[in-house]
Computed example of a mutant assay.
Amino acid sequence: MLKRLHLSTKELEDLTIGQIQDFIVEYVKSEETKKEKNSRKANQSDFDNF
């Protein structure tokens, strides 16, 4: 996760627990947003093909 956030170990050591939690929350939100953009609702044709 540090590599994805472009943080070094030294930078991580300088963060407080609250800042780390904020980073994690924002990271999870951004990942969920990416997944939502790549998904769509299934239609009847999809169910028929299943």
Rank of each mutant, 00 (worst) to 15 (best):
Y27H: 13
D22F: 13
M1H: 07
E36S: 07
K3C: 03
E26V: 07
E26Q: 13
Q19R: 14
L7I: 02
Q21M: 13
K37N: 09
A42K: 13
T9C: 02
K37H: 01
E26S: 07
N49F: 04
K35Q: 04
S39T: 09
L2Y: 12
V28G: 08
L2Q: 11
H6I: 10
K10D: 11
F50M: 13
K29S: 08
D46F: 00
H6L: 10
L12A: 07
D48L: 07
L15N: 00
E36L: 07
S45G: 06
L12M: 13
V28A: 14
S8A: 01
N49P: 00
F47H: 12
I24N: 04
E13H: 12
Q19E: 15
V25G: 02
G18I: 10
F47W: 10
T33P: 01
M1G: 10
T33F: 01
R40F: 01
D22R: 14
I20W: 10
I17A: 15
N43Q: 03
T9V: 08
N38T: 04
N49D: 09
R4I: 09
E31Q: 10
K3I: 09
F50G: 09
V28S: 10
N43G: 03
K37R: 11
F23H: 09
E26I: 06
T9W: 03
D48Y: 09
Q19M: 09
Q21T: 14
Y27Q: 06
E11N: 06
Q19V: 06
H6K: 14
Q21D: 15
T9S: 07
N43I: 04
T16F: 04
F50W: 06
R40D: 02
T9E: 11
E11D: 11
E32Y: 04
K29Y: 03
N38S: 12
S39Y: 02
K41H: 09
D48E: 15
A42P: 07
I24G: 00
E13M: 12
K10T: 08
K34C: 00
K41G: 02
S45F: 04
F23G: 00
D22T: 15
T9D: 10
A42M: 14
E31M: 05
Q44P: 00
K35C: 01
E26W: 08
G18H: 05
N43D: 11
D48M: 07
L15H: 02
F47I: 09
L7C: 03
H6M: 11
R40T: 01
E26Y: 08
Y27R: 05
N49L: 10
I24C: 08
K35A: 06
S45E: 14
V25E: 15
D22S: 15
S30Q: 13
D46I: 00
E31G: 01
E31S: 06
K3W: 05
K3G: 06
M1W: 10
E32C: 04
K29C: 04
S39L: 05
L12Q: 04
L7M: 07
F50T: 03
F23C: 10
I24S: 08
V28F: 11
G18R: 08
E32Q: 12
D46K: 00
Q19N: 12
Y27L: 12
S8G: 05
Q44H: 09
E26R: 13
N38K: 08
R4A: 14
E32V: 08
N49T: 05
